[in-house]
């Protein structure tokens, strides 16, 4: 009885699917214009890549400088607090001084009126705009995303960020009119819909002045450095993750060998072969 019922239920599903196949028009998929012009991220090799990856602290510091002097005009870094900057190799005094150089929202201790005060190490990076409406009104109605997690929140990660920063080109001649950038938009083939509200942020060599002993601040170098910095902001615990991972693996390899040997020994007489 169960089997007869099941047979008819099964036929019902199969019939519904055959019906679905018949009524669904089969459209051969053509590559859309955006897919045709869209490019995959360039390759970007960073010191933090791979299971042995560690951060290049000099590079992170340069990247933070690029963020401070360029990106932070529009983009927030809400999730990062100042004391975590010790991950970049800064000491406590440097972090205190750096935090104090930022004005963060606060309350006047006498009147209770909203005001600003110098930042403390426990404060987070202050946002450039008070809220979303202010951010949009200053940016032609586009919202600059928070950058704290950007390398984890975009398909392609850090190479995507690097490609976007260095990927602005002239509009190709064969791009159809409806895909050409409108007012306030900029052509960038690494962006999914090709037209990006962000104007090219890194435009000329020397836009940021690196301390002596660092590589030349070319556009490419600055883009690499800030991408590396944004990998760190998204994953500040990467180095301890890799270190603990290797320790755990070393322990488990010994553990597994021992359990295998004891398994073999216990079963030795039962295998009967």
């Amino acid at each position: 009885m169960v089997r007869i019922l099941a047979f008819f239920v099964g036929l019902g599903f199969v019939a519904a699917l055959i019906f679905s196949i018949i009524v669904t028009p089969f459209a051969s998929t053509e590559e859309s214009v955006t897919e045709e012009f869209h490019k995959q991220p360039k390759t970007l090799a960073l010191a933090s890549d791979g299971p042995f990856g560690r951060y290049d602290k000099q590079q992170l510091q340069r990247g933070m400088q690029v963020y401070n002097e360029v990106c932070s005009a529009c983009h927030s870094l809400n999730l990062v607090n100042f004391y975590s900057l010790e991950g970049l190799g800064y000491n406590e005094a440097q972090i205190k001084a750096y935090a104090a150089s930022h004005e963060v929202p606060g309350l006047d201790p006498d009147t209770g009126e909203p005001t600003t005060r110098p930042g403390l190490p426990s404060d987070h990076f202050p946002a450039p705009y008070a809220n979303e409406i202010a951010a949009r009104s200053a940016n032609n109605n586009a919202l600059p995303p928070d950058l704290s997690l950007i390398t984890k929140a975009r398909e392609g990660g850090a190479p995507y960020v690097y490609s976007l920063l260095t990927g602005y080109t002239a509009v190709p001649a064969d791009l159809p009119a409806e895909n050409r950038p409108g007012t306030g938009l900029h052509y960038n083939p690494y962006f999914a819909n090709l037209n990006l509200a962000m104007a090219p942020p890194l435009t000329s060599e020397g836009q940021v002045t690196y301390a002596p002993g660092n590589p030349k601040p070319t556009v490419d170098q600055m883009a690499k450095d800030v991408s590396a910095f944004l990998v760190w902001t998204a994953e500040p615990k990467l180095e301890s993750r890799h270190a603990i991972g290797w320790a755990a693996l070393a322990f488990l390899l010994i553990f597994t060998v021992l359990t295998y040997l004891s398994y073999r020994q216990i079963w030795a007489e039962k295998k009967g072969k």
Binding site: P51, R241, H242, I244, G245, W246, A248, L249, L252, L253, F255, T256, T259, Y260, S262, Y263
Partner: peptide
């Protein structure tokens, strides 16, 4: 099962940490 647990944890650690 102890041996199986070892293999399982190795795979788990590789994914979780790397």
């Amino acid at each position: 099962d102890g041996f199986g647990v070892g293999i399982f944890l190795i795979a788990f650690v590789v994914m979780t940490f790397f």
